[in-house]
Design a protein around this nucleic acid. Structure first.
Lengths: 220, 220
DNA sequence: TCGCGATCTTGACAACTGTCAAGAGTTTCT
DNA sequence: AGAAACTCTTGACAGTTGTCAAGATCGCGA
């Protein structure tokens, strides 16, 4: 174990301190673990398999983590950090509702295309959390963060359109998440149209997530 | 192995034939397996655990099934048969759109309340199919059957309302499935409001799955 | 009643898992 | 340079798993 127990902020000096290297190794191991998890899924991933996808041997895990559970949870939190800001730039810079909708759908398709293993892993972990208590708290927290991410998109979308969201945050997230998970499943099953269908369906659904326009009906 | 290889239709005589008993045992084992799977999830369920939830010992599985995979797939197909007709009676006997919507939402809540383990298992298996090729074909087939089940509800709902479905079958299913899975997760996490929220959200979403009314706008 | 096939139990097997201790190798500091 | 702390490898452990073979038990037909 490292001598110091203080958390590792970047050192002011040029040299890296021990704690920084320690945290770097933890991250390195977590990335190897995430790669393996994305390929094999939670159930089939063993510590030895993780180590084989890393420059280290299987025993090193217990030097940097208390055990398998702590490693997995660390991975899950790392995954979350990479996810929840995915649409923020798009939300900040879009100027019309249709521009925001288009860019959001494109990004949705793009992340499925480029990061399919991680998305498979996410749905796998969320299912595992239905049975494994140790995962539940972190999975629920990530789900909330994803919901908030979607809600930021929708509220800005509504704002740009001069309308209101049709549903509240959890319901809106549930609908879009169902759409995305269906695409992940189809993509994993090798359906080549999965990407295009996701984009097309998302762009059809988005307008219905805003409440119907009022006040434009002609006077009687 | 049983002497005859013919499939076991109910015998005309009063006595049960060997093949009938053979199939009965397969079903019995599959039910024990489904119970264990619903409690522990796919990853943590072993053949010995399944056998402990049955009147038999662990070795008997290999007398009735070629191996673990065949047992699991047999279970999954059995699960499907119990699921896909859940809303058919309601579809056949409802006479107004709001009656159908109410009864559908009630049934949705009821099945989550009474059969939560099986629903957990379903989402678990669908996630496992993202990694395990042996499960993929059967899981995809079940997903299609569930989609058709939902589509029967929606087309009848639209018919009773004198309107058209707003989206096609896959998209409608994806949206409602997202809603239901969210409720399964919340229910498993012990949130007591999960059941009520599911019913409330479903009844809010259903009307938006029909295309907006046209032709009722007053003439200019 | 007896015999034979169907059914089921028991026990063993190899493979795999998470865990951890012992020690080798490496870096750091005085 | 030498000691001390840190880092990593190796090998072993106990437990679990799917699989299957050998044999015990059951039940039906003659």
């Amino acid at each position: 174990m490292p001598a110091s127990t203080t958390s590792a902020a970047p050192s002011v000096t040029g040299r890296r301190t021990r704690d920084e290297k320690y945290d770097e190794r933890r991250g390195q191991l977590a990335d190897s673990a995430l790669q393996t998890l994305g390929e094999l899924g939670y159930a089939r991933t063993s510590l030895r398999e993780i180590a084989q996808n890393s420059p280290f041997s299987h025993g090193v895990v217990h030097y940097y983590f208390a055990g398998k559970d702590e490693l997995i949870i660390y991975c899950v939190q790392r995954y979350k950090a990479a996810c929840v800001t995915r649409y923020d730039e798009l939300v900040a810079t879009s100027t019309t509702p249709s521009e925001l909708a288009d860019r959001f759908c494109d990004k949705l398709v793009e992340t499925l295309r480029d990061e399919a293993p991680l998305h498979r892993l996410w749905y796998d972990l969320r299912s595992q959390a239905l049975f494994e208590d140790a995962l539940r708290a972190d999975v629920v927290e990530i789900d909330r963060a994803l919901e908030a991410m979607i809600w930021r998109v929708l509220t800005r979308y509504a704002e740009l359109a001069g309308r209101a969201p049709a549903f509240d945050s959890p319901l809106s997230y549930a609908l879009l998440d169902g759409l995305f998970e269906q695409a992940v499943v189809a993509h994993a099953a090798g359906e080549p149209a999965a990407l295009a269908l996701l984009g097309e369906r998302a762009s059809r659904v988005l307008p219905t997530l805003l409440s119907p326009v009022v006040g434009t009906r002609r006077r009687p």
